[in-house]
């Protein structure tokens, strides 16, 4: 007996590419989704099982219901904290990257500013928050500065490392071609430095929302940090969790953007290839 394989339907081959990619993505992410669904179910049942009062730990279903009712305010505050986070983050990159580059190439700066930066990195940047609030008031500027301060060091320190660690072989190869500083920079040094720079960008992205939120805790009249502080004081942990959810979305959005940029700019790097 023979079977004409061409007559059999080949669903995988005929599905649109986008749908196939979506299915592949779901296949990869189902353990992650299953973990969180399981976690929230455990949480929901544990609150009933152990009779935990709602003012201590509300159920996820209550958080969703109460948070949903307050979504307009949460969305407003999301944009405010988001603006502080994004502006501060990109300013930190705009300042940190060239400074890191300058230190990597200047022995004088390496001996002067670099040790100062390393010492400053040891100081919790949040300690500066009250000072900035008292100098600059309750507006957006002090929060942006705190985010810049929190994000600047990982960006700058990783840039110093990135631009200062081209292999001896590549350095000698470039010199043997007679290429000038700029040509060597664009063709070799910059692309070679990008993977390490992204380590700094990602670390800074993780910390950016932390900086904005804590700055809002210390002195603000709007934003998600302010919201969480107020609702917690009013014994409304359900709304506090809703605020935390929005902060998480903000953090993931920034981190996702940086990861997307990493995939677009350094698709050849092992850290990207492996994923």
């Amino acid at each position: 007996m023979t079977m004409a394989s061409s007559e059999k339907p080949a669903p995988a081959g005929r599905l649109p590419a986008v749908l196939l990619r979506l299915l592949a993505s779901l296949e990869r992410s189902w353990p992650f989704v299953a973990f969180f669904v399981g976690l929230f179910l455990c949480w929901e049942w544990s609150v009933d099982l152990f009779n935990i009062p709602a003012y201590i730990l509300p159920k996820p279903s209550e958080i969703v219901a109460k948070g949903w009712a307050d979504v307009p305010r949460l969305v407003d505050y999301f944009w405010i904290t988001g603006m502080e986070t994004f502006v501060g983050y990109f300013l930190a990159i705009a300042v940190g990257l060239p400074i890191g580059l300058a230190i990597a190439f200047s022995p004088l700066l390496r001996r002067t500013i670099y040790p100062f930066f390393v010492s400053l990195e040891m100081v919790p940047k949040i300690a500066f928050a009250p000072l900035f609030i008292s100098w600059l008031g309750f507006g957006m500027l002090p929060k942006v500065i705190i985010v810049v301060l929190v994000c600047f060091f990982p960006v700058a320190l990783n840039s110093i490392h990135a631009f200062g660690s081209l292999s001896d072989e590549l350095t000698r190869f470039c010199r043997s071609t007679g290429a000038g500083v700029w040509r060597t920079f664009w063709k070799v040094r910059l692309p070679a430095a990008l993977p390490q720079c992204f380590v700094g960008f990602k670390y800074a992205a993780v910390n950016a929302t932390v900086g904005a939120t804590i700055a809002e805790f210390i002195g603000s009249d709007q934003g998600l940090g302010f919201y969480i502080q107020i609702v917690t004081g009013n014994m409304r942990p359900d709304l506090a969790f809703a605020g935390i959810f929005f902060l998480t979305v903000l953090g993931l959005l920034l981190f996702g953007l940086v990861t997307l940029a990493e995939h677009l700019l350094i698709p050849w790097h092992i850290s990207v290839r492996r994923h």
Binding site: E169, L170, R172, F173, V188, P191, A192, W268, H269
Partner: peptide, 10 residues
């Protein structure tokens, strides 16, 4: 040419 080659990964 060196023992570690100077091919760039990008």
């Amino acid at each position: 040419m060196f023992q570690d080659n100077t091919l760039v990964p990008w």
